[in-house]
């Protein structure tokens, strides 16, 4: 008798499982037409509270993929330790794994995740995935949109994100170009170069870097 009951159960149990799923809402999200419902703890694209940030450098230390580096505002000397608190982080979403460690490490809670998940780059430039602090800023007055790629490169030349973005055989070349650019920058900060020659010379190097990035971005 017990075995008969067991056998009947062995028929009913799987039918119950499949029947439960038959009336459930399907898991699939019809993506372009429907928006994905994001959980509260979803780690989406970052935003930066520009005024809260103190430039402590903990997020860069925490980053396992080394995709955070700092940018100093115009006219500030990075060699001066007093200026450390004015630097702000730039992030390379192309290398970011969205682990959330930078958000966790931030002592002032300047970093945080938004529920946004759409991330894309145009086919000819990896530059779109690297965001400067001015693009990440929450505050309206700090936010800045770049007119062209060259002006974005001007800011990003301070960071080592460019090397990582191109990778491979180009990495060394970019490193050398950046060193050259930094010497020029320091000369300008020391007052050995006037504004116009600095601009011309730096622009030359930046154009080279942009060319290399575009070359490396090609499939």
């Amino acid at each position: 008798m017990v075995s008969i009951v067991k056998k009947i159960k062995s028929f009913i149990l799987p039918m119950r499982v499949t029947g439960k799923y038959m009336v459930k809402k399907p898991f699939t999200v019809m993506y372009p037409r429907e928006k994905a419902v994001v959980k509260k703890r979803w780690r989406g694209l970052h935003e930066l509270a520009f005024n809260k940030c103190v430039g402590c450098g903990l997020c860069r230390m925490a980053c396992p993929n080394k995709c955070i580096d700092y940018i100093y505002p115009e006219g500030l000397d990075p060699r001066d330790k007093k200026n450390l608190k004015f630097r702000r982080p730039a992030i390379d979403w192309g290398h970011c794994i969205f682990c959330g460690l930078c958000v966790e490490a931030c002592p002032t809670k300047a970093w945080y995740h938004t529920p946004r998940y759409k991330i894309y780059a145009t086919s000819d430039s990896r530059l779109d995935l690297i965001r400067t602090p001015y693009e990440l800023a929450v505050e309206e007055d700090k936010r800045k949109t770049y007119e062209d790629e060259l002006s974005k490169i001007r800011d990003l030349m301070q960071t080592d994100l460019l090397e990582a973005a191109v990778g491979g055989e180009w990495e060394e070349i970019i490193k050398k170009l950046r060193e050259k650019w930094r010497d020029l920058w320091y000369m300008k900060l020391d007052g050995k170069l006037d504004e116009k020659t600095w601009d011309e010379k730096a622009r030359e190097i930046e154009k080279l870097v942009l060319d290399i990035i575009k070359q490396a971005s090609l499939p």
Partner: peptide, 10 residues
Amino acid sequence: KVIGRIHHRR
């Protein structure tokens, strides 16, 4: 449709 639903898809 029913097979899809049981597979948890559309």
